[in-house]
């Protein structure tokens, strides 16, 4: 009897918690299909009386959110591809190649994690201004091309590669670049997927730095474009919800598809830090 009660309580609480977690997202989706102004009636409706795509049409045809979407896709993809390459190379070197100062350099990198990224943002803006890169895609992409977290994650994983495997390849006369591409990378596949999805999601959701470095609409990513729309169209609830859906949906779908890899990376990255 008591176990039955406990089972009901536990699953009931889980159900309630999930409802609270999902409600804002469900509401966002529902309101995005309402006619302009409909969500403002009292009591607030939960479902559209007459579903419409009007808000999405306005966003794409009149406001040009497609441009923001394209910018977000381009910037996030570039960051993911390039930083993946850089972090993989560095993480592998820290794990498997011997060189003077290896421990010291790695310690220094980890020490850098203490410093919040925002400390660097003011001079970084001046630096990019000098380079003529303010309000450009490069301004968003360049600073994100390597991350201590990524290097660390790869190093942790790459340490499991047997040394004999690499030595054998060297005996056979394979160059270091070939060893990396043909032997190491295939072994690192799971962590490559993990790091790719984490990097993509982080780049997609990033707000403060793009807000600083992107000064004109043409280069806005979705979060920046959405934040600026929200100030202009504060009263257009339905329109803003459609914009939020467009921003959130790609990352949510990506997460659902690759959830296992994402959660694994989250654990690897935090448990040992």
């Amino acid at each position: 009897m008591s176990t039955k009660l406990a089972r009901w309580t536990i699953n009931g609480l889980l159900l309630a918690g999930s409802a609270v977690a999902l409600f804002p997202l469900a509401w966002m989706l529902s309101v995005s299909f309402m006619h302009p102004g409909d969500s403002g009636s009292l009591p607030p409706p939960l479902l559209p009386a007459d579903a419409t795509l009007a808000n999405y049409r306005t966003l794409f045809l009149r406001i040009g959110i497609g441009g923001y979407l394209a910018n977000s896709l381009a910037v996030s993809t570039a960051i993911t591809a390039l930083s993946l390459a850089f972090n993989l190379m560095a993480g592998y070197a820290f794990a498997k190649l011997r060189f003077r100062g290896r421990t010291a350099v790695f310690r220094a990198l980890l020490g850098g994690l203490v410093i919040p990224a925002q400390v660097a943002m003011l001079p970084l803006f001046l630096l990019l201004k000098t380079l003529g890169l303010v309000n450009s895609y490069a301004g968003v992409v360049l600073p994100a091309l390597a991350s201590v977290f990524g290097v660390f994650l790869v190093r942790e994983y790459a340490r499991g590669i047997p040394r004999e495997l690499l030595e054998a390849a060297r005996m056979d006369g394979a160059g270091e670049a070939r060893i990396f591409v043909q032997i190491v990378l295939p072994l690192l596949r799971p962590i490559v997927v993990t790091l790719a999805i984490i990097t993509f999601l982080t780049a997609w959701n990033d707000f403060m730095w793009p807000l600083i470095v992107l000064t004109g609409q043409d280069h806005y990513t979705l979060p920046i474009g959405l934040a600026s729309l929200a100030r202009e169209h504060a009263r257009d609830t339905e329109l803003m919800m459609a914009g939020a859906v467009i921003t959130v949906l790609p990352v949510l779908v990506l997460f659902l598809a690759l959830q296992r890899y994402y959660l694994q990376g989250l654990l690897l990255g935090s448990v040992k830090r």
Partner: peptide, 26 residues
């Protein structure tokens, strides 16, 4: 005693991957 654990875990985790700006507007 928890049932449907994978579903509940995904549902409870979903807000983490959403874009701050978008859900802040919501």
């Amino acid at each position: 005693l928890a049932r449907a654990r994978a579903f509940f875990r995904t549902a409870l985790f979903a807000p983490v991957v959403t874009t701050v700006v978008a859900v802040a507007i919501v």
